[in-house]
């Protein structure tokens, strides 16, 4: 479904990704594992069209999307749920969700879609008319995920969904991710909580200093000595 071939990318003159390749098949949950600064977020942002790679190729469902802008990538069915929630603080929860359905294709079905999404997040429904900034961290994360789903994406990318959340909320987030995948949305996830992520994912990539160093099934990664030592602390 998504193929990333040998991309190099970065901000301004500093190059962060060096020859990254990966692929995601329809219906999978795939994870990217790596230390802070390894280039995980940059990879997701490059796929989302927010950074144009200096070389390499990204294809989605057979179409070359390497040089598309962010809004065009959203139209193709890829949505990124960013690190740190990034809600619109002075807007209500409902307005935040409607922004998720901004593109024309999604806008026509926004009301139906809103109902569907709210069924998955009953807590969000209760908060519908509060401003986003008044929510707790866990609630904000749920709104961010719900907002991402409003565009009805085929591929949903998560950047650190557990960021700053208490363990109990983190497990709720992972349940939601599994639920979303079960309904047929493909998931690419970057997470510091490596163990929980590998538990829900089918495959994983290990990124170090902007390079993919290991690519394995999630099960094998959990057993891999290097991964256990470097990322699981066992």
């Amino acid at each position: 479904m998504l193929t990333v071939e040998n991309i190099h990318a970065g901000y301004g003159p500093t190059s962060i990704l060096q020859d990254v390749s990966l692929d995601v098949k329809e219906g999978e949950i795939v994870t990217i594992v790596g230390a802070n600064g390894a280039g995980k977020t940059t990879t997701l942002r490059t796929i989302a069209g927010l950074i144009t790679p200096t070389s390499g190729r990204i294809t989605f469902c057979g179409e070359d999307i390497t040089r598309l802008r962010g809004d065009q990538v959203v139209d193709r069915g890829i949505t990124l749920i960013p690190e740190g929630r990034q809600l619109f603080p002075d807007m209500t929860v409902r307005e935040n969700l409607l922004m998720g359905a901004y593109r024309r294709a999604a806008r026509d079905f926004q009301d139906e879609r809103l109902e569907e999404v709210l069924d998955i997040f009953p807590r969000v429904r209760e908060r519908l008319h509060q401003t986003a900034s008044s929510l707790s961290g866990g609630e904000q994360q749920m709104v961010a995920i719900a907002r991402g789903m409003m565009a009805n994406p085929r591929l949903l990318m998560f950047d650190e969904p557990s960021l700053g959340l208490a363990p109990i909320i983190v497990s709720q987030v992972f349940e939601v991710v599994q639920q979303i995948a079960a309904k047929g949305t493909t998931v690419l996830i970057v997470e510091q909580n490596v163990y929980s992520t590998l538990k829900v994912a089918q495959r994983g990539y290990v990124l170090e200093n902007g390079r993919v160093v290991i690519s394995e099934s999630a099960e094998d990664l959990l057993q891999d000595d290097y991964v256990r030592q470097a990322y699981l602390g066992i």
Binding site: V73, Q86, F88, P89, Y102, R103
Partner: peptide, 16 residues
């Protein structure tokens, strides 16, 4: 309003 409050997130929503 979205662009004013959080430009980066607005881009992610597909807002030009």
């Amino acid at each position: 309003r979205a662009v004013a409050q959080n430009r980066g997130a607005a881009e992610l929503m597909g807002i030009n």
